[in-house]
Amino acid sequence: MSKHLQKPPGVPLREEDFEAQRVLSVMYRPKMRYSWATGVAIGRFLKGLRAGKIIGTQCAHCRRIVVPPRVFCEWCFRPVNDWVDLPDTGIINTFSVSYISTDTTKLKTPIIPAVIEIDGTTHAGFLHVIGEAKPETLKIGTRVKAVWAESTKRRGSITDIRYFKPAEWKP
């Protein structure tokens, strides 16, 4: 604040002023709707989840296995059409403990997002959340296993896996 200006100019506004419409304002709520085509790769992946399976693809050129799958290798720029069934186990590549919800309110029980390297894949992570674990017990490198929704409740969505939980090390 400059020495000539002791107080910022203008009138401070409180939330009540907006609610009581003492402030001139325009309200507009966007009503956008989309129906994204899953296409070949995501479609097959989601179908796999509904069946309780994690499906990836392998590039015939660089041999890399990725999940979620894709029909092209972004490293080699070649079509990919070798599909592989993968285990539902892996290790935590990185994780965080999130205390804030999508509407920016504070969460009492935090959500633990993690990048999980599914066993058999290389340089390709699976983004999900960790459950049945205290944050302080988790480490980068912790082994985890998928906890699936009941088969009748699975609908071909990433949430068909409820979460990953810490698992025993089985080489």
Binding site: A37, G39, V71, F72, W75, F77, P79
Partner: peptide, 27 residues
């Protein structure tokens, strides 16, 4: 409409054709 492919798969097709037409490897 193109329900059989995702936008990424649609773009990949166009890109492959363009690079082949130019005789180039994008990588």
């Amino acid at each position: 409409s193109t329900p059989q492919v995702s936008y990424k798969e649609l773009i990949f097709e166009a890109a492959q054709k363009a690079y082949e037409d130019a005789g180039l490897n994008p990588r």
